[in-house]
């Protein structure tokens, strides 16, 4: 079973997306902040995909992606970030930080799973 780590400060987002992912057969590990996510990644969680929000209190998503890319066993892990249509400029920044791609919020289950399929086999 593939594991996806989902990082977002919004409980609603965590709940709705993890619901979709769980139903699709993924194991979901959630974290409500970049720090929380970082802690879980450092203590042995090795997801096949990381999905993270960009705007979070504390460490923001871009910083988080940069930190994750530093960890040797995660340096090539697919990372998708959650973004909105209006945040186009953030995409380039996130990609430069090491993100693989993005998911536009709000996403339908179909879009979400389709996008995940692009980066996780």
């Amino acid at each position: 079973m593939k594991t996806i780590m989902l990082v977002d400060d919004s409980a609603t987002v965590l709940l709705s997306i993890s619901g979709i992912l769980t139903k699709a057969g993924f194991k979901v590990v959630t974290a409500n902040s970049a720090e929380d996510g970082q802690k879980k990644l450092a203590t042995g969680t090795k997801p096949d995909l990381l999905i993270t929000d960009l705007n979070m209190p504390g460490m923001n998503g871009i910083e988080f992606i940069k930190v994750v890319r530093q960890q040797a066993d995660l340096r090539f892990m697919p990372i998708l970030f959650l973004t909105t249509e209006s945040q186009q400029s953030k995409r380039a920044e996130a990609k430069a930080a090491g993100a693989s791609g993005w998911i536009v919020k709000p996403a339908t289950a179909e879009t979400l799973l389709g996008t995940i399929k692009l980066v996780v086999r």
Partner: peptide, 17 residues
């Protein structure tokens, strides 16, 4: 592309959908 965590295979496999 590989370093960014993506594999061309996935994109091409997706074409099959």
């Amino acid at each position: 592309v590989l370093r960014q965590g993506m594999d061309p295979e996935n994109f091409l496999r997706f074409l099959e959908t």
